[in-house]
């Protein structure tokens, strides 16, 4: 088709072979300036990220060693460590995953594979979209009132994990729905054609294909839970604990809370500890994201 390779980008020569009018030259210079401004705007975020990481590493890297990882919090900065906080974060991570993953994926399966197109489905869907936008501190108020007080779970790990599970529920549901929606319909039709029931189709065909996307979304949501501070302050996680939790009813602290506790103190020594704690937290988040990428690659390889 003639003209198919027509201009899709700016033609600096105007297609007339030189001899531009001054007005056109001005337009093109303005265009170049705009391109640079847009590129610079994109770099603002990247540069901010670089400065932030540089700032934290510079302040904290000297403090991170084995003793820091294996010591409890202390009044004396030189003896303080993140043992209780790291253990608490790992507990919260595991419990939140155990609670939130099955419920969210089931909800996503229902909405994508089972739900009829009626007002109940639309209501649930609208509700999930709105829940995703509720500030995390509001979930903290809910957790404090329902789990800590009404259900009498006190200021325990399970209160914290339940609160964070509610917080990331909509995030995982939305990611899982997208992953399930991406499975081609021909797979489902072939499965039904062979006489499979709906659940057999979902559990043996749709879910395995959607799993890489679901897992990636879940791990990203869990990273958010691990980085959360405000809701856990509400449900009463404390900043100063000298034991590792051994059961669901134990008091606990987590890395972000320990960091907040250290930042809140005026002495510089504690700010150094906060920076070191941030490095441990970022390392934990980074390894979770690496795990997400590895899992996704693993599943994708098996599928082919």
């Amino acid at each position: 088709m003639p003209g198919a390779e027509g201009p899709v980008g700016p033609r600096t020569d105007g297609g007339l072979g030189g001899g531009q009018r001054p007005r056109d030259r001005r337009r093109h210079i303005l265009g170049d300036v705009f391109a640079v401004v847009c590129g610079a705007a994109t770099l603002v975020g990247v540069v901010a990220l670089a400065i932030l990481l540089f700032d934290v590493v510079r302040d904290g890297v000297g403090q991170v060693d084995l003793a820091f990882l294996t010591s409890f919090a202390s009044r004396f900065p030189e003896r303080a460590g993140v043992k209780a906080a790291l253990a608490g974060s790992v507990w919260i991570l595991g419990l939140t995953a155990l609670i939130a993953f099955p419920i969210s994926v089931s909800a996503a399966i229902y909405l994508e594979e089972y739900a009829a197109q009626n007002w109940i489905t639309r209501l649930i869907q609208l509700n999930i979209a709105n829940l995703a936008g509720v500030p995390s501190i509001v979930y903290g108020i809910l957790g404090l009132t329902v789990f800590v007080r009404a259900l009498g779970l006190e200021r325990s790990i399970i209160s914290g994990a339940l609160t964070l599970s509610l917080l990331i529920l909509p995030v995982i549901i939305i990611a899982a729905q997208e992953a399930i929606r991406a499975v081609p319909d021909s797979i489902r039709q072939a499965s039904y054609g062979l006489g499979a029931t709906r659940w057999q189709t979902v559990s043996r065909q749709v879910l395995p294909m959607a799993m890489p996307g679901i897992l990636t979304g879940t791990i990203l949501a869990l990273s958010r839970a691990v980085g959360e501070t405000a809701p856990l302050i509400m449900v009463g996680a404390v900043g100063f604990i000298a034991f590792t939790p051994s059961g669901l009813g134990d008091q606990f602290t987590v890395l972000p809370l320990q960091i907040f506790n250290w930042i809140s103190r005026p002495q510089d020594e504690f700010h150094v500890l906060a920076a070191a704690g941030i490095l441990v937290l970022l390392a934990l988040l980074l390894s979770m994201n690496a795990a997400a990428i590895l899992l996704r690659n693993h599943y994708q390889k098996n599928r082919n």
Partner: peptide, 21 residues
């Protein structure tokens, strides 16, 4: 992905950055 990392940094870290930098 770099912008996604920026979105994934915990807010307590941003607080530290604001206060100390």
């Amino acid at each position: 992905p770099l912008l996604e990392i920026l979105a994934g940094i915990p807010t307590v870290v941003y607080g530290y950055f604001a206060l100390t930098f």
